[in-house]
């Protein structure tokens, strides 16, 4: 088991991570969800032994790896958020270089390179220079490099940032396959809640350096079991309508993003009649009203008052 115990990282006056604790059991996919700047990358940099924590501990099989990181590093693959590749080398040359520094050689290296190229779907493009790859292909090779030494654990830091939906799906399917077929344990960080919902068995949600909630998808969503999420579209934005929603005591939260008004309110309240009444009073024309089942995004909104991608 890989475990982070009350990890804290302070950079001068700024506390990037504050007493974050999480664990990974063999064979599961754990999501670390949070907006940009929440402290996810710093947390995984500490877990992967790249930076020492200011306080707290990282334990692998009940042994601290802060001072002796080698044991963990041997079984750990890390996919950084950045494209950590040599763009003037081909895909194969990149894999050869990283394979050799992982002390692979000869037939073993050759076989591993072929397998990894197969996994990330780049066998046909193995001799092309990375600088000629699309963003999605670079992301796939970025993952491939982390798989070369057949790690038991893999930490992925927002591996789908800035790529097209097709490449994104490919990567998500690849992660799922690695977990199911190779029994690889995955810590997956993202600010896309749909990715985390699709992949992960358990989820940690981080904000401003704190882990604010953790559990299975269902457990987290149950936080909102007593509330409805209602999304309203209006013909024309009307400030007095928004103000009226804010002032209404039965509505617990109101957010407006891209013309879409999202409100949270207790389930037992008959909110629809209240909404229509407020619309009528403020002369607002409602074009659609949708009652949704809660998402992780709604949970984050409920807990922090902000959207994940604010």
């Amino acid at each position: 088991m890989l475990e982070a115990v009350e990890l804290t990282k302070q950079f001068k006056q700024h506390k990037a991570v504050n007493k974050a604790s999480l664990f990974l059991e063999r064979g599961e996919i754990v999501g670390l969800l949070g907006p940009n700047g929440a402290g996810k990358s710093t947390t995984i940099a500490m877990i992967s032994t790249l930076i020492p924590p200011t306080s707290g501990d990282v334990r692998f099989n009940n042994e601290s790896v802060i001072k002796h990181p080698h044991k963990l590093r041997n079984v750990l693959g890390v996919v950084p958020q950045e494209i950590a590749l040599y763009s003037d080398l081909s895909a194969k040359e990149n894999l050869q270089f990283f394979g050799k520094i992982y002390r692979l050689s000869g037939m073993e290296l050759k076989t591993r390179i072929e397998e990894v190229l197969e996994i990330v779907g780049l066998t046909d493009r193995q001799n092309d220079l990375v600088k000629h790859f699309s963003g999605g292909m670079k992301r796939r090779l970025n993952i491939g490099v982390a798989l070369l030494h057949e790690p038991k654990f893999i930490i992925m830091d927002e591996p789908t940032v800035g790529i097209d939906p097709q490449s994104r799906n490919y990567i998500l399917e690849t992660v799922k396959r690695l977990n199911e077929e190779k029994k690889m344990t995955v810590l997956y960080t993202s600010h896309y809640m749909e990715e985390v919902e699709f992949l992960c068995d358990r989820i940690y949600i981080m904000d401003q350096g704190h882990i604010i909630v953790s559990g299975t998808k269902e457990e987290i969503k149950n936080i909102l079991s007593s509330e409805d999420t209602i999304q309203i579209k209006v013909e024309r934005a009307n400030e007095s309508f928004i103000q009226a929603l804010h002032q209404n005591p039965i509505i617990s939260r109101v957010t407006v993003q891209d013309g879409l008004i999202t409100i949270l309110a207790p389930k037992e309240v008959n909110l629809l009649s209240t909404l229509f009444k407020l619309a009528d009073e403020t002369k607002t024309v409602l074009t659609s009203v949708e009652i949704k089942t809660p998402t992780l995004e709604d949970v984050f909104l409920h807990l922090t008052g902000r959207a994940l991608r604010d």
């Binding site: 590093r73 750990l76 890390v78 950045e82 950590a84 040599y86 990283f98 992982y102 490099v145």
Partner: peptide, 11 residues
């Protein structure tokens, strides 16, 4: 480009 991180992680 974080390649150095990869080098460190390779022990």
């Amino acid at each position: 480009s974080h390649v150095f991180q990869r080098i460190l992680l390779a022990n």
